[in-house]
Each structure stands twice: as C-alpha cells, then as structure tokens.
Write a protein that binds this DNA or RNA. Structure first.
Ligand SMILES: Nc1ccn([C@H]2C[C@H](O)[C@@H](COP(=O)(O)OP(=O)(O)OP(=O)(O)O)O2)c(=O)n1
Ligand SMILES: [Mg+2]
Ligand SMILES: [Mg+2]
Length: 931
DNA sequence: ACGGATACGACA
DNA sequence: TTGTCGTAT
C-alpha cells in the first residue's frame, strides 16, 4: 500500500462532516481512574520517575489542575514540584526496566470501541484521538428533520463552541435568521464561490454534527469514565485544529465563513504537519506568520518554493480545504518497542546487549501474542533499529527483515543476527571477547505488515472460492447469452448471480464447520492440486456422514449467516450437497421467501455447476482467474462467517463491528491481488440479513474490475455504501418554497438529553470511494490512484535512483569513507549531482503517458502481467530491487551523512538526532533533479 | 549529555 | 518494497 492516503473529490470540500475526538490529559485520566484518590488533585504522569534520586523523570501528561499551576509536559519531576509542590507525580509502570504504556493503549482502545459504535468510518490517529467521518449520519438526521421526525437537541450543545462566536447560541440564532431571510439580503459571495446557500448548508451540517459529537463524548464518559474534547469541521485538519481550542471536556465547531478571519491570526505552526521545521521554513521563506498569509501566494509559487505536493497542499489548507479521507483504521499498523541507552549507559558488552534484546523481544512478543489473539493477525515483517556511537558520533540504522514466526527465541535470534550482520566489526579486536566495537545507544524492534492468520482450512476455502468464482464467470456467460448482446450484466442478473453464488458457497462452508482441523491433511500453503483437495473434501464428507457431530451449530444459537441468504428449496437435487447440508437443513425450514421460477431455473443451473466438479473444464475464452486473487476475496467472506458463527452470544451490533474490522484487516492483505479477466465481474450489494430479518445496511463486498486501468488486473474489495439523499435545506434561489415554516430545523425545548438510542443506524459507511489520480511528485505524471499503479510508477523512480553506475560509485565512496571517516560534506553534494545526471542518461527512455496500450506480457522476473509499454519500467524495478538486496546483504559499509538539523530554538522537540548512515546522501531538495 | 516511547507517512 | 527523515502524541 504505497499511496495509502486517499482524497475526496474537490467538490466535497464542504460536504463532509469530520469529528476529531481527543481525550483530555489522557494518561492522567487513566491514572486517576485507576487511583480515584488522585481526582481533584494536580496530577502529572512521568516516565522514569526517579525524582527522589536525580530529579529525573520526564513528564508526558499533565492534568488541567496541574496545568493551571504551570506544570507542563517535558518538565522534569522536580521542576513540576517547584511549580506545584502538591503535584501528584504518577509514574508510568515500569516493566522489564523500561516504561510500559500498554495500560494507556488499552484505555485508548476502550474509547475507540465506544466511538466505533457511532461509525466504523473511524481513523485512530493516536493512542488518544480518532477522526470520524459522520457525514452520512448527519445527512440522515437532516433528512429526518426535513421529514419532521427529527430535532436538534440543544442539550447536546451545552459545551459546544463555535469559532468566531461568543456563545453557541449566537451561532444557532444566526443560522435561524439566515434561513428566515431566505437568502434575499445576502448576496454575499465569497471568493471561493461561497454563497449564502453553501454557508447555510454548511452551518447546518456542522451543527447537527456537533450534536452527534456531543453524543459521542457523553457516551464515552458514560462507558469509560473518561472525558474528552472534540472538533467538528468539514475536514480532518480543521477538526483537529479546532478541537484543541476549547479543552477540557468541550467541543468546537468551525463555521465555514469564519475561516478567513480565523486564519488571519492563526500561527502557521498550529496546523498539523506545520508544527516543525517545515512550518518554520515556510514562515521564514515567505516572511509570514499566520496561516492566512499564505493566501497571497499562487499555487504555482508555493509549488515552486516547496514541492509540488506540499505547494498544493498549502494552497488549499490556507483556504480551509483539506480533502484527505478519513481512512477507516482501527488497528495499528505496527507494534514496537525501543529503548535508549544514552551517555555512559550505552551498551558496550555483548552480554548486556543480549540482555536488552531479550527484554525488548519479550515485550514485543507479549504484545504480539495479545494482538494475534485479539485481532487475528500476524506480522510478516520486523524492523530492527539501533544507534551506534562511531567516532563520538551517533549513527542510526534500521534494517527490515521478514519474519515467519514470532516467538521469543526466533525474534531474539533475528535481532541478534541483524545486529551482528550490520555492525562491522561487531566485536572489539584484540580485546577480551564480548566487548562490542561500537557502543549501542539505542535499540528497537517493531513488527508490521500484518496479515490475517491463515487458517488450516484455507485450502478448503480455496477450493470453494475457486468454484464460486468459476461459477460466477460461468453464470456471467450464461446470463449474457440469455439476455441478448448486452455488454454488461443487468442488475437483475447480477443479483441472481450473487445470491446463488454466495448461498451455495456458504452451504458448502457448513461442511468446514464439521471438520476437525487435524482431518485436513494438506498443510496450508502447500501446493496440493485441486484434485487432491477434492478428494480430501469428499473423504471428509463421508466421515461426516458416519459420525454426524453435534458440535455444528449445536448450541442452537442464532447463526449470523444462517438466514443470511434465502435458501433454495431444492436441495434434493444434490447428493453430495444434501449430505453435506443435511445437518443444516433445519435452517432452511423456517425460511419463507420463495424464489421466482425464473430465478429457480437459473439457480439450478448454478447448482448443477457446483455439484459437478468443473476443475478441469476449460472454457477457452472464459475469464481466467488467478488463484490468489479469488482465494483471498472469498476467503474474506469465509472468515466473516466463521468468526461470527463461532461466537457465543449473538449481538448484532457487535457483529457488525466485528465484520467491519475483519474487512478492514483483510483489506490490508489484498495488496497483491492480481487477476486477469475478460469480463466485468461484479458482486455488488450483497445484502446481509440478521435473524430478525433486520437489514444490515451498506455492507457490500465488491469484486470489480477497474475498467479505467490499463492493467486489467486489479481486484478491489471495498466497502461501499449507498447514499442517496440530498441536502434537505437545498434552497433554490429561484424557488419560493423555502420559508420559515418549511424550515426543517426545529429546536427542541426542554428535552431530555439524547441517549444513544436516538442514533438509529450506527452502521454508516464512507462516501463512495471516488476514483482519483495522484500526481507524481517527481515527474508530474498523473497516476491512477491505485496502489499498484502508483507503486509501479514509484518503482520506476526507485530504479532511477539505483543504477549500476551509482553502485560502483558509492562503493568507491564507501572505501574512501571507511579509510577516512571524517570527510567532505560539501564535496558530497557536487558528487551527487553528477551521479544523478549519470543515472539519467543510464535510464534514458521515454516515459509515455500511462494511457492506452492494452497489450500485456508476463514479466520474466515475477510473472506479473505488465503492459508492454511498461515492461522497461517494470524491469527497472526488478533491477533496482536486486541492487538494493545485494547492497543490503553484502557487508557494504554505509556512507556517513552529516547531520544538519538545528535546534531552531522553537520550544518544540529539538533533540538533534544522530547522524544517519545512508547509501547515498541526497540533497534535501533534489526531487526536481530527477525528471 | 537521562528529553522517552511509540506510531505514521513522505520521500528517494 | 528498503531505509531515512520529519512529525506527531
Ligand atoms: N510527547 C508526547 C505527547 C503525548 N504523549 C501521551 C500522553 C498524553 O496523555 C497522550 C495524549 O496526548 P495529547 O497530545 O492528546 O495530550 P493530552 O491528552 O495529555 O492532553 P490534552 O488534553 O491537551 O489532549 O499521549 C506522550 O507520551 N508524549
Ligand atoms: Mg489528548
Ligand atoms: Mg491526542
């Protein structure tokens, strides 16, 4: 997942409602909850709380009472005591000689669980904050309000503030006034085409959004006991910005039309992303201080002065526009731990090193084990970080390595070996064994690139998946034949296809539930043939017949998928299926719905297909699928089923969330899907039904070819939604229908605080994913915003960076460096330029637009189908990879790159990091050099 | 040079 | 699909 961020369409710039919820002095609250005696007292949380010894211990959280007395983050324990003698210094629990922050992670998860109750379109941004896109819920409520059965409850707005207004009441009043005026007076046209109608709409959305934020916060308080603040705006950056304006236990909305005046005095550094060096550079270079000042510059100029990407971003941000999506993410992408060994604490002996490796690995294994249990996933990559002191200078390195097992022993070994391999010489020469040549001042290990756990039954799934997919393609063909010459499936046919396909698939899955894991003879990942698998399957069927185990669905608890699809009534057709499904028959009896004859026929055809093993039928011109793709896609469905069916008690709401998380997790595994297909295969709008026949909204699993891609080899599985309604306050200037009476907003008087039940649907989805393009920062080309396409393009640039010439060159450079460690910072730069230009010539080749050319050819290296006109580019990718791997594996010494960061006296974090070893030092602004 | 631990995304 | 850097909590 290269370009992980995605963006909404610009026409959505004021359409979304985004909430940022941030816990108030979070760690303090956690500690106060744990030890209620602390409540009401000034509290600060410290790490390494040795204040009695050396005055040490850094403060990382301060509650609001202590803040009032001047205690701040980054102070030491004793400094805090000076400011506030009564301050309670609570220390982060120490485990294994290092602080352990898991209690805060757990607490953060509690909060996220509450928030996820409102929408799964939630992005956890840190341990104590999350973004939520509540556009749909807002829309829904506004629709209800329009219909007359919804109201805005002012009780939910008691702690709400609106930027630019003294009281939230003023804001509400103004909304009402503007409505009654019906836009006649104000021909106010703002620069961005901000007309009064847009503003009214925006205000309304934000106001409704604020009530939802109020519900969220009170629910959090109710469930967890923690207090938090929230920001409500049209995008993430603004929501975050505004959240911090009123704390604690408050929320703030940012009305659209307040933005310009607000930005006029807003320091640039307040914007997320501009709080560091970049923000300083901006102010320095442009001689500005406030965000609004950026508005004077053209986009082109900003791009020229900074980068294309950043320039555009700044151009938009200073106008209050931020199109970045709230990307659903509940899980963290990596889990890691680390420790510094500053000063004379540096590790100098091998035994000490082993000790700390053990400590760190113990911790990460512990956390990973918990993670695998909770989240059903496993990391496939580990990153080892370490900092050496070389010639008095700190030198940091990281190495990544793929891992297959995550036990203590192997991770310790991995870590040890990585260190040994990358530190040369590792031991001091001519010294007693066990003394390290370079003191180690920092150690870290983290795990990432998670994949969901492979189940033993995966091979069965594979078979089902294949059959199902094949069935789908067959059906596609059949349907098409019967429905004239249409190029695409009719909705009707699609529906038929989906229902039957999935139904049959899940029927067969019932078999799986009867199988013991041990019965499955072929190991996961082993490449047994389809024939083998079929054999195994049949064998199991027999076994099952003889000893019908009662464990299958025996608990009588409702199974989420039991009534998922309407069952067909003609199971009798199928011998094997019948056997297989006999146990499940009871689930069919209470099903009422009957299929139409027409569908019935088609269903039979489908079933027939399933009954017979079509593994070897070759349909010369039929869509050809590629194993992994379908397996993964349908495994997703399977996993949903097995997870849900395995649950003790059935809670629909919980299941929905589980489902969503599964989809999120699975989605992270889908990066490598490659499918070749001639036709559009769409499985849309699979509707999921609960036992109570209540519809779960908006879950759809879509397997669709992206017809816009040249590479017709992308399968995407995404969650999509159906949004329909349009803004109820649509005030047509030409129309007279809008008057105060019709106005949908009613202020409810004297109402009880709303409870969460008032939120009807807790299961909203994100707006339809828009197709979009991303512009390559390096060459400016527009790339389809698709992981594969983008990555492929990036790979091209990677290749550019690593030519043979360059490898030779820096090998030479390397030797020089090794021989004379302290050298030539300025000379480096000159050298670099020539390097780059040599690369350019080396790779001189035309870069066409990515459009056109349908022909593809399998890559010799990886077998992937590549557009012929992209083969060269693709080959470069492999080339680069090889070089990179070679460089990594060989004991090539790195070039030491001088640090160049200055404290800047910014009051922010300003530790000057260690200098870093890099393969090639690059000028910081070299992007434009490569073209 | 006890101002730490942790996580994420951009870039080359 | 690696490693460094910046930024953030
Ligand atoms: N440099 C930092 C910043 C924060 N945190 C931890 C402690 C905080 O409690 C928690 C959340 O960070 P916030 O920035 O949200 O700060 P608080 O929640 O403590 O206070 P606020 O009420 O201002 O959000 O993350 C940390 O360990 N190190
Ligand atoms: Mg906070
Ligand atoms: Mg925070």
């Amino acid at each position: 997942m290269s370009s992980s961020r995605s963006f909404v369409n610009p026409n959505q710039k004021y359409e979304r409602v985004v909430v940022l919820v941030d816990m108030d002095c979070f760690f303090c609250q956690v500690e106060e909850k744990l030890n209620p005696e602390l409540k009401g007292k000034p509290v600060a949380v410290v790490q390494y709380n040795n204040w009695n010894v050396s005055g040490g211990g850094g403060i990382i959280a301060v509650n609001y009472i202590a803040r009032d007395m001047g205690v701040t983050r980054h102070m030491r324990g004793d400094e805090a005591r000076e400011k506030c003698p009564e301050v309670e210094l609570v220390k982060v629990p120490n485990h294994r000689e290092k602080p352990d922050t898991s209690r805060y992670r757990d607490a953060g998860k509690e909060v996220a669980d509450v928030l996820q109750t409102f929408t799964t379109l939630l992005e956890r941004a840190s341990v104590d904050e999350a973004y939520l896109d509540i556009t749909e819920e807002v829309q829904k409520r506004m629709d209800n309000i329009t219909k007359g059965d919804g109201q805005v409850d002012p009780n939910l707005l008691v702690n709400t503030f609106a930027v630019g207004y003294e009281h939230i009441g003023d804001f509400i009043r103004e909304i009402l006034t503007s409505i009654s005026n019906n836009g006649e007076d104000e021909a106010e046209s703002y620069e961005d085409g901000l007309d009064s109608s847009t503003i009214r709409k925006s205000n309304f959305k934000l106001l409704v959004g604020a009530t939802i934020a109020g519900e969220m916060r009170s629910k959090i308080k109710e469930v967890t006991g923690y207090e938090c603040s929230a920001g409500v705006a049209h995008n993430k950056v603004l929501a975050k910005l505004v959240c911090g304006m009123n704390k604690p236990n408050k929320q703030t909305v940012l009305p659209l039309k307040e933005i310009p005046s607000f930005f006029k005095t807003l320091p640039v550094g307040k914007i997320k992303g501009l709080g560091g060096k970049f923000g300083e550079d901006i102010c320095e270079m442009l001689k500005i201080k406030h965000l609004g000042d950026l508005g004077k510059f053209s986009e082109e100029e900003l791009q020229r002065r900074f980068t294309e990407r950043n320039g555009s971003w700044l151009y938009q941000i200073c106008r209050g526009i931020d199109l970045e999506c709230v990307t659903p993410r509940y899980y963290s992408k990596s889990i890691g731990c680390c420790k510094r060994f500053p000063g004379r604490n540096a590790i100098t002996g091998y035994n000490t090193l082993k000790h700390w490796i053990t400590e760190l690995v113990t911790e990460i294994v512990e956390r990973l084990e918990k993670d695998v249990e909770e989240n059903n996933r496993q990391p496939k990559q580990s990153v080892i970080s370490f900092t050496l002191e070389i010639n008095g200078e700190d030198v940091a390195q990281t190495r990544s390595i793929s891992i297959t097992s995550i036990d203590q022993e192997s991770l310790e070994q991995v870590m040890t070996e990585v260190l040994k391999k990358n530190i040369d010489p590792f031991f001091k020469k001519n010294e007693a064994a066990g003394l390290l040549n370079f003191p180690i001042k920092f150690l870290g290990i983290s795990a990432g690139k998670f994949v969901s756990i492979e189940k033993k039954t995966v091979t069965l799934e594979t078979m089902f998946a294949k059959q199902a997919l094949k069935a789908s393609t067959t059906a596609v063909k059949d349907v098409k034949v019967s429905s004239a010459q249409e190029n695409t499936l009719t909705q009707e046919n699609k529906k038929i296809l989906k229902e039957n396909l999935l139904e049959k698939m899940f029927e067969k899955q019932a078999l799986k539930a009867t199988l013991k894991d041990e019965d499955i003879s072929f190991a996961p990942g082993c490449s047994s043939t389809q024939e083998n698998k079929s054999l195994v399957l049949e064998k199991q069927s027999e076994d099952f017949k003889e000893k019908p185990t009662e464990e299958v669905n025996s608990k009588g608890k409702p199974s989420f998928f039991k009534n998922f699809f309407i069952k067909s009534k003609n199971d009798e057709k199928v011998d094997e299926s019948k056997t297989i499904n006999s146990e499940e028959n009871h689930t069919t009896e209470n099903d009422s719905k009957i299929k139409e004859d027409d569908e019935e026929t088609k269903l039979k055809a489908l079933e027939d297909w399933f009954i017979n093993d079509h593994e070897d039928d070759e349909e010369p011109n039929l869509p050809v699928y590629k194993n992994e793709a379908e397996r993964k896609a349908l495994e997703k469905l399977y996993e949903i089923q097995s997870t849900i069916d395995g649950n003790e008690s059935f809670d629909l709401e919980k299941e929905k969330i589980t489902l969503k998380r599964l989809l999120e997790l699975k989605a992270t595994n889908e990066n490598d899907i490659s499918v070749k297909s001639n036709k559009n295969i769409e499985l849309n709008d699979i509707s999921v039904k609960s036992d109570e026949n209540s519809e779960i909204n908006d879950i759809s699993i879509e397997i669709v070819e992206n017809s816009e891609l040249k590479n017709k080899n992308d399968i995407s599985v995404k969650i999509e939604e159906n949004s329909e309604t349009e803004f109820p306050l649509k005030i047509d200037e030409n129309s007279e229908t809008t008057n105060n009476e019709n106005f949908p907003l009613k202020i409810k008087e004297n109402s009880e605080p709303k409870t969460n039940e008032n939120i009807k649907t807790l299961f909203e989805e994100n707006p339809k994913t828009q197709k979009s393009f991303v512009k390559c920062d390096q060459c400016g080309k527009n790339i389809v915003d698709n992981d594969k396409a983008v990555q492929s393009h990036k790979d091209y640039h990677t290749a550019l960076n690593v030519s043979r010439d360059q490898r030779e060159e820096f090998r030479q450079e390397l030797k020089n460096k090794i021989l004379s460690p302290k050298q030539t910072p300025p000379a480096k730069k000159a050298k670099l330029d020539t390097t780059i230009s040599s690369i350019k010539t080396f790779f001189a080749k035309p870069l066409d637009s990515e459009e056109s050319s349908v022909d593809q050819q399998p890559c010799d290296e990886c077998g992937r189908l590549i557009d012929v006109d992209k083969l060269a580019e693709h080959a470069d990718y492999h080339f680069a990879r090889k070089i990179q791997i070679e460089m990594n594996s060989n004991d090539i010494k790195m070039v030491s790159k001088n640090k160049k960061l200055q404290p800047k006296g910014k009051g922010k974090d300003f530790k000057s990091g260690p200098s870093v070893l890099t393969f090639f030092s690059q000028p910081s602004t070299s992007k434009s050099t490569i073209h």
